[in-house]
Design a protein around this nucleic acid. Structure first.
Lengths: 326, 326
DNA sequence: CTGTTAGCGCCTTCAT
DNA sequence: ATGAAGGCGCTAACAG
């Protein structure tokens, strides 16, 4: 039989209401009786039952985190940021993977609803109206992490993806590159990636930008695609939509007996730890992965306790970290 | 006002008990009334409140997952395995990071207790009696993932670490290596790593095994340490305790103008995706990271529903994947 | 097969 | 400053 608040009350010779008050600091309790209660709690090894608390208070201090796949470095780092801040504000996180599939995403929003999470942190490749509807139906505060919402109907934390694409190309241009390629996933796979490509194209000002599509952007499958493209086209600079693709680009170049950055310069997105584990180390458009999580979680806490929020669409800064690949 | 089971009952003109029965399939309900209930549920958009359910049934269908750090590739992959299986059995996971600090770990076990999780999946570097005591006090079923429990008091899923260390050294020996090194973290940092070193030393049969300690085993800080050691000692083969360290070893060799595998052969532990993203691709002792999570979660479900379990200490197979670094 | 009735453990007015 | 009492939404006997 687990010890309940009643047991503590009896032990301390007070009512359960008083015990509740000292636990929650929800009202002033005389110093002396508070002490007795605390002693009783310690003596009995009492732990408040969060489920009962949740039912009575309608707040679970639990946040739902929906991501495409935690095993991706980018996502894992972001989740770490979320959890750190959540922990700081005394929240726990319920983590689920959606594999970026709309059906699953909608279904998961439903489970979050049933579990009565206080809020949701949401990341996906493409945001559709089906998910938006699901959020509305569930009536749960949501913050988007590193996810584009064209309509801006939901609070979000992101970088300026369009601009980052422009910056990447601009960097190569200033390094003297003439024949530039943009290695990315298939169109429609990720709204974020598509935005960056747009920015990149804009910066080319009509000059040709070679677009190399690699399906879902995995290293293993992208490498041959990239190599084939390089063999057919003589490029001298590429921007890769992720570190993984950047790595594939570097290896594709090296496999051809050429070298980075002498023959081809490479700049990649993200800046996961992978970027410094390659030779040559990669120049990157660094993304604040940890901060995507940390800041969005912080924003969510504000939403949850009605703190004033001056900006529901937070744009974090990206920045170029120059290394040996350019 | 969220719709409750009462609303559904009224709408379907039955009692709430009947609604509960069709939701849970906990008793036979006449086909006709079941249909009415289902329609009412659909019409009202009813969602059962999992918190109330948890309070009444004393089971939350939530599993606590305590790991050192999700942002580590190994861990993230394992968590993915956990979540996939949890999802399959209709459980959700409450994820927390402990940074492998005992105080935090004990505190987190307490949190899991309060949240009334049905079970805990636990990973750490060093298991102490303080955590074991915390588990006992909380009275929650636990399964250890990729974590050594010398006493074998808690169900666990692991590989045979001692043997894997032996196998790694044996592999190098058979490749003709004479001066072998073992790159690992500081002693006491990880029981798993220490066990492997023991296995490695055993296989050397009295011959000298160079042990290179690199603190917490991070690439950035380990690289200079390894390079310094290589410059002072002429090794022709090394075992690295993780892919990250293996990568550092390869780069250390290359930085000296030597080459892998001609001058130094490298075999590493883990086989995260990093292993195939290096040149040369790394030979590894592959660990079933995903399966650590999947199998331990499956084991936990058995424990939770009193299914017969034939082995509380599951040993998964490790295996050598030979690539270009040896 | 279905309805009635207790709780589950806690928060939260409302009195005192 | 403290106690009494009524839910929160649901499960699980127990009747019928």
């Amino acid at each position: 039989m687990p010890v309940t608040i009643y047991d503590v009350a009896r032990e301390a010779k007070v009512s359960m209401a008083t015990v509740s008050r000292v636990i929650n600091g929800t009202a002033v309790v005389k110093e002396d009786t508070k002490k007795r209660v605390l002693e009783a709690i310690a003596k009995l090894g009492y732990r408040p039952n969060a489920v009962a608390r949740g039912l009575a208070s309608k707040r679970t201090r639990t946040i739902g985190v929906i991501v495409p796949d935690v095993s991706a470095a980018f996502v894992a780092e972001m989740v770490r940021g979320i959890e750190d801040i959540a922990n700081m504000y005394d929240y726990n996180i319920l983590l689920v993977n959606s594999d970026a599939q709309v059906d699953r995403e909608v279904s998961l929003i439903g489970t979050m609803w049933e579990k009565q999470v206080d809020g949701i942190l949401y990341m996906t490749n493409v945001l559709t109206s089906r998910e938006i509807d699901a959020f509305e139906e569930a009536q749960i505060p949501v913050v988007l992490c590193a996810t584009e919402d064209p309509e801006r109907r939901i609070p979000s934390v992101n970088i300026d993806n369009y601009r980052s694409g422009r910056d990447a190309v601009n960097f190569l241009l200033q390094k003297g590159c003439k024949r530039i390629g943009f290695i990315t996933m298939d169109e429609g796979f990720s709204v974020v990636a598509d935005r960056r490509l747009q920015g990149a194209q804009n910066r080319m000002r009509g000059q040709e930008l070679h677009v190399i599509r690699t399906g879902r952007g995995r290293y293993e499958t992208s490498l041959p695609v990239i190599r084939a493209y390089f063999e057919a086209h003589d490029l001298d600079g590429v921007v890769a939509a992720s570190d993984e693709l950047g790595l594939a680009a570097i290896h594709a170049v090296q496999d051809m007996g050429k070298s980075v950055p002498e023959d081809v310069k490479v700049i990649a997105f993200d800046n996961t730890r992978l970027a410094v584990m390659v030779r040559p180390e990669m120049t990157v458009i660094a993304q604040p992965m940890y901060d995507f999580g940390a800041v969005s979680m912080r924003l969510l806490t504000k939403l949850l306790q009605d703190e004033p929020v001056d900006n529901y669409t937070v744009i974090l800064q990206h920045n170029i970290v120059e290394r040996a690949s350019t």
